[in-house]
Design a binder for these strands. Structure first.
Lengths: 239, 239
DNA sequence: CTATATCAACCTGTCATACAGGTTTTAAGG
DNA sequence: CCTTAAAACCTGTATGACAGGTTGATATAG
């Protein structure tokens, strides 16, 4: 029955927003790191003096953004960096026609020209192997578009990981959903086996440049790859 | 009392996740665009055959990610592209020590070297004026760090806007929160008026390059600007 | 005394209901 | 036709209830 005292005479952006802030603030002030447990809903209910409904909606919202992990019976914990929210935003932008596939590809090109150069400079041997392996699998399975696509996506994510900057990984991974929806279209424009294998060759060139540690060459191949991909999409009539 | 029939024998990721999917699916299949209204909670409750609690938590989650807009009395509507979720993810990464300020700056540098080049090529006159104006205000208010910072942020966001690719705007804006938390540190390392004005001059150079439409020069100035900013942060001991 | 099994306490997931206070629609009255 | 008041609908929040998962304490068997 008691309403939030609302000490400050603010216009009050709603109790849930306040609760969300309180939780993130708690993470900050307690210096929590991934895996650390958060207060239970009941505890937070008492602390904020609001109903469990409000607290739950706050927790659930943070969970939807993948900032915290929730599961039945256990208390919520601080989550590891995850692309969940970001990819939903991108997807939303695409489906509501606020951004175009072409625009996403421009951003990807910009970012991946950097990740590939960083990967060439900083990759571990294991990372170089993982990248090369994805390219190899693309060739092996090139009769199966579904699989080629997944290995293609894994290829780019592996490069981002080898850049050793998780922010790049985050963004690249967030775009993977869009790729999954348009990839096949580009693949279909490469009608002959030769065309398709040429495209796979492009990936191998990139992997090789990373392996030998040549950032300039790697970036060049990546640029070429994107230019061809964009052209393929344009040919297919994707704006 | 009735539980979800759960037709498929899946491990069921929870009713709320299902509801979230149903709502985004609705947006997609109905081809909704920003401002279009969504079904009411009651309608969705009936359609999904779950309690209002579940539906509400789903709506609230999407609202937290700023994919939809909610306000009392009115039905929820599809939201315009907003950086809300993305910046929360970045902030979360920073506060939980999963990403460093330095890594964010590397991404910013990568992206803004592109946005500034695009801006030089595609800016309208109004956009060029807005960019130049932010730089001018920085100089005018250079005694007031708080304001300089805000104009600095506005400067970079204006450039991103002038790139005419909303995805760039989205990302750049998402980083603004981090900037707000570290900007002052960099400013303090520029102890003399001369140093501070030199930094502002850097912004004016960028604005000028955009005005005359020279993408290469603009990118060069932007690179210089970031190199100095990163150096300033390093000098201040920020990893 | 140790190992194991059981139970109690706590926690999240979902449902039902109630009511306050916005917003839109409808209908009545001028 | 216009104005206004009421009705219908909507979201925001609170409360209580119960199912089922998790964990740690406790009691029991070995």
């Amino acid at each position: 029955m008691q309403q939030q005292t609302d000490a400050a005479g603010e216009p009050s952006p709603g109790l849930v927003s306040t609760a969300i802030q309180a939780i993130t603030q708690h993470i900050r002030s307690e210096g929590l790191t991934p895996g650390d447990p958060l207060p239970s809903e009941a505890a937070m209910t008492r602390r904020l003096n609001v109903s469990r409904t409000v607290v739950r909606e706050a927790f659930r919202s943070l969970s939807a953004m993948r900032l915290i992990d929730m599961s039945a019976g256990r208390r919520a914990t601080v989550a590891k960096l995850d692309t969940g929210a970001m990819s939903m935003v991108i997807e939303h932008g695409i489906t509501t026609q606020q951004i175009s596939v072409h625009q996403v590809y421009d951003v990807r090109r910009t970012i991946e020209m950097r990740t590939v150069a960083l990967a060439a400079l900083r990759r571990t041997d294991a990372e170089a192997a993982a990248i090369a392996n994805s390219a190899r699998l693309m060739r092996e399975e090139f009769r199966n578009p579904e699989l080629v696509m997944e290995y293609d996506i894994a290829f780019h994510e592996a490069i981002a990981a080898a850049s050793h900057n998780p922010v790049f990984s985050l963004i690249v991974t967030a775009f993977s959903g869009v790729t999954r929806r348009t990839w096949v279209i580009g693949w279909r424009t490469r009608s002959t086996d030769e065309d398709q294998l040429k495209m796979i060759k492009g990936h191998e060139d990139i992997a090789q440049a990373i392996l030998v540690g040549d950032p300039r060459l790697a970036a060049e191949h990546m640029a070429l790859h994107f230019d061809k991909s964009v052209k393929a999409l344009l040919d297919a009539g994707i704006a």
